[in-house]
Design a protein around this nucleic acid. Structure first.
Length: 869
RNA sequence: GGGCGCUUAGCUCAGUUGGUUCAGAGCACUUGGUUUACACCCAAGGGGUCGGGGGUUCGAAUCCCUCAGCGCCCACCA
């Protein structure tokens, strides 16, 4: 049968994906087999596929396909995340383009726009995953705002509230003035920025003296409620108990002492603004200071700020500095480098701000999670993240779970009473009403008397339940799916969401199911460009994922990504790696062409060299298979791939096929042909998780009737290998390599004949394989012969010892080994002058492990004498 | 400031409990090669005081100390 010269990935990818889908090979239902489960880290619903997704999902697909071949009931649950703040920010922008402000809309109208957006852009990324070949169970696709998922979230909130773990508190939070919501600490990114530090003096009441403070935020002076210095700071003792006057505002504030003030920094005096700094708030609490919030939600100054009311905080800063300067209160300003927190999503500078928010107590519920990671019940790959994890868990803070947004799960909290300052937590308004009425026992309330909290939950408050809720394990803890698939096996994700997501899933697993949510976590690295830079839009160094697939084929891109993706290390991606993948595809494709071109003869006998080669490859395969399994066990996916890559390219193609392939116009014996076919099939099986399309295509061209499609075939069994056979072949290879080397170095052309003769026991010292050169003029170049002490020139013109043994130890054994090699070489000899075989012509010289052996013996001797002393 | 990690060939990285898989892989590089599976190829080859210094040991890339450089996480000074 004619097979096309080049492998065309494009032609076959959709064919096979459709085939797998129609035959429901990705779909999983509980059965008698053992489950193997992965839940996808749900990408943002409006996201598009980027390199990070490609890497992450390729790895998941490899694990799932491997498990499927291993005979597990493999289930990979896909889905998307509503991504509360990220999506809302996008919708707000979209509306802005249309000239619509969020404030002009009702909550319901805004949500309609958001759902619109979600329907238009959502799920695109899942389609893109299909292009990559991901074998997800698409019937199980979930979205964090699905009805059942939302109900689970609400149920969990209520449960935690009942346990007393959720509380409402007036706390210092990170305020994003653009999105006008709070953020958790994890959502704030600190960047170093060049700014200025201002030295401002405050007059002392009834005195001509002044007290000076240093601040980077002069616009907050109207929120000052004290000035503090360190008790050890003698300079300011005289001011203790006196009052300072805030410039411009002319308000009197106390001067206090607090050991938290750093006497080295600035002037040693600190203005205290309890409403806008965590630190100041703590000092404020100790001294019972007034709290003055000077900001509006959008970051502008509020009505307490005199003529500056309504100005944006940064405009106000400039103007206030100007005025301070004009009245002589500004003593100096200096350049200053500090770190400023920005919102991860809107990139807006964060305001620390006191605000009433909902929190989840973390300390207690995180304890079992910490220990399950530390004792390796959940394994982290690579291990180093255990420490990072511990560090965070041991210093865990309460989780701010409320957000002043509309897109998300609205808090199931209902306020009532004349001031609406009582609240009840309930599944819905009807429940709430019932509960309140039961509670009060008098004057029944109506629905209208209840007001639901406007806030939504942090987006991670739904995704922390993901491994449980995708199987509906919160609402129906006894359901079949949940009990079958949970806990899941592997989680594959980036270390950037270790705290956001991974840690919290482990916590929720323990809290709600008294078990771990997954057994292993594989942390992928960041995909960078080949210069090591992060991929970014500005640099334009982020390749379009789909274009790559289009150009090289999905298989090649998958392989290209993995060629440099050790777990947890960032990987430097370069398109050329995809090219390498494509070349690999072509190499395999060509072995198919070779096999297909053979004419098989039932009559021909298997020749000696083919028999030896087959036996060797069998052992080699089994040896490598054990290595590959080990790599998988340790989640060294790239190493597994590289091992397979070398096994196929080097061992199967370059050595094995070259040795057994018949000479031009000759036929191949059936035994050998069948061996090559069976080994080829085994190679396809182990490569399938990495290159699913190519392998399935080739499989379909060589499979026998009894074979199932590759995707649902079986991973080869691990079998023992013959170490002696491998050793022997190693010698043979070395001999051949050295003969080739000899040819190369001596420009001994292929047209010149080489003859191998055997000889043993000459000099009573060495046995060896001897290469006889005929028709040659090597004497002038004899010094270029193998630079190995044990290769000796027996005859300056004709003989080289290719392999030598010390015969004193085990003559028989050595003789056997020698005979084996010689027998093999003899069989190759016949092919030496065949043109067909030229490129791989088995030729030349030397093995020597003698020196090492001697060293080792010496070492052992020393050790022994030491021990006996 | 607290915690963690890294430094091995030109590049990206393996190297498990110190010693026969210990100096490795892939890519890149050099040289030679194409009428017969494959130039998207074949063959051969050259590259490393294992960041510096010191120590433990019969023996160190591997363990300890120290110095230098790089990176990550957390907290944060106004």
């Amino acid at each position: 049968m004619e097979v096309e010269k080049y492998f065309d990935a494009k032609k076959i990818e959709s064919k096979w994906y459709n085939y797998w889908m129609t035959n429901k090979f990705f779909f999983s239902k509980p059965n008698e087999k053992k489950p193997f489960t992965i839940v996808i880290p749900p990408p943002n619903v409006t996201g598009i596929l980027h390199m990070g997704h490609m890497l992450n999902n390729t790895i998941q697909d490899i694990l799932i396909r491997k498990a499927r071949l291993d005979g597990f009931n493999a289930c990979w649950v896909p889905g998307t995340d509503h991504a509360s703040i990220a999506t809302e920010a996008k919708v707000v922008n979209k509306l802005k383009e249309k000239g619509i402000k969020k404030d002009d809309l009702t909550r319901e109208q805004f949500l309609e726009h958001s759902w619109d957006w979600t329907e238009k852009h959502g799920g695109l990324i899942l389609k893109q995953l299909k292009k990559l070949g991901c074998s997800c169970d698409w019937n199980r696709t979930k979205f964090t705002l699905d009805k059942d998922m939302s109900e689970s979230v609400i149920k969990v909130f209520i449960e935690l509230h009942k346990k007393g773990l959720i509380y409402r508190g007036h706390r210092m939070v990170n305020w994003d003035p653009e999105a006008r919501t709070t953020l958790s600490n994890e959502e704030v990114i600190f960047d170093e920025v060049e700014t200025k530090i201002f030295y401002i003096s405050y007059k002392i009441l009834n005195s001509s003296e002044e007290i000076q403070v240093a601040t980077t935020r002069p616009e907050t002076i109207f929120g000052d409620t004290a000035i503090a210095f360190n008790p050890d700071d003698k300079r300011y003792l005289k001011f203790l108990g006196k009052k300072a006057i805030i410039p411009i505002l002319n308000k009197e504030i106390p001067i206090i002492m607090d050991s938290q003030v750093d006497l080295e920094f600035g002037t040693g005096c600190l203005k205290i603004t309890p409403a806008h700094s965590e630190n100041d708030k703590l000092i404020g609490e100790r001294h019972k200071l007034e709290i003055v919030d000077i900001l509006n939600d959008d970051g502008s100054l509020n009505e307490l700020n005199l003529q500056y009311s309504g100005l944006d905080r940064f405009d106000a800063r400039n103007k206030i500095v100007k005025e301070l300067s004009s009245i002589g209160a500004l003593k100096k300003s200096e350049p200053y480098t500090t770190k400023i927190g920005k919102s991860e999503r809107t990139n807006c500078i964060i305001e620390p701000r006191l605000s009433k928010q909902w929190f989840l107590k973390m300390k207690k519920i995180s304890e079992p999670a910490l220990s399950s990671v530390m004792n390796d019940e959940i394994k982290f790959f690579p291990k180093k993240f255990k420490n990072t994890f511990r560090n965070w868990m041991e210093n865990i803070r309460d989780w701010n779970i409320s957000r002043q947004l509309w897109w998300g799960h609205r808090l199931p909290v209902y306020y009532y009473g004349p001031e609406k300052d009582n609240y009840i937590v309930a599944e819905n308004i009807d429940n709430a009403l019932e509960l309140v009425n039961q509670k009060k026992g008098y004057e029944l309330l109506k629905k209208e008397d209840l007001v639901q909290d406007n806030d939504v939950l942090d987006t991670w408050f739904s995704s922390w339940l993901w491994p449980i809720s995708v199987f509906d394990g919160i609402r129906n803890p006894k359901n079949k799916d949940f009990n079958y698939y949970y806990p899941t096996n592997d989680l594959v994700t980036g270390p950037d969401i270790l705290f956001f997501w991974v840690a919290r899933m482990i916590i929720s697993g323990h809290e709600f199911k008294k078990s771990i949510p997954f057994n292993s976590v594989y942390f992928t690295g960041l995909v960078r460009d080949k210069l090591g830079r992060k991929m970014s839009k500005q640099l334009g160094n982020s390749p379009d994922a789909l274009k790559l697939i289009d150009k090289f084929g999905a298989d090649s891109v998958r392989v290209g990504l993995l060629f440099s993706a050790p777990a947890g290390n960032d990987l430097l991606f370069d398109e050329s790696l995809c090219q390498q993948g494509k070349n690999f595809s072509n190499k395999i494709w060509n072995s198919l062409r070779l096999l297909k071109s053979w004419k098989v003869s039932e009559k021909l006998k298997e020749c000696e060299s083919s028999a030896i080669a087959s036996k060797w490859f069998d052992s080699k395969f089994n040896l490598k298979l054990i290595e590959i399994e080990d790599h998988f066990k340790k989640y060294r996916i790239s190493d597994a791939l590289i091992t397979i890559y070398k096994l196929i390219w080097e061992d199967y193609c370059s050595w094995y096929l070259e040795m057994v392939k018949p000479n031009y116009s000759e036929q191949i014996d059936y035994v050998t042909f069948n061996n090559t076919l069976q080994y080829f099939k085994k190679c396809l099986k182990i490569l399938h998780p990495f290159m699913p399309f190519l392998t399935e295509e080739i499989w379909s061209l060589i499979k026998e009737k009894k074979d199932s499609p590759l995707i649902v075939s079986n991973w080869p069994e691990t079998k023992p290998f013959d170490i002696k056979c491998l050793d022997n072949f190693k010698h043979i290879k070395k001999v051949i390599t050295n003969i080739r080397k000899f040819r190369n170095e001596n420009s001994y052309s292929f047209s010149k004949k080489l003859e191998i003769v055997t000889k043993s026991n000459f000099n009573n010292k060495f046995s060896g394989i001897v290469l006889k050169l005929t028709n040659t003029h090597v004497e002038s170049k004899k010094n270029k012969t193998p630079n190995n002490k044990n290769s000796i020139i027996v005859d300056s013109k004709e003989y080289f010892v290719l392999n030598s043994f010390e015969s004193k130890d085990d003559k028989t054994k050595i003789r056997q080994e020698l005979d084996y090699n010689i027998g093999f070489l003899k069989s190759i000899q016949a092919k030496l002058n065949n043109k067909k075989f030229i490129s791989n012509a088995p030729q030349n010289v030397v093995i020597n492990e003698q020196k090492k052996e001697k060293d080792t013996l010496e070492k052992i001797r020393i050790l022994e004498s030491k021990l006996s002393e």
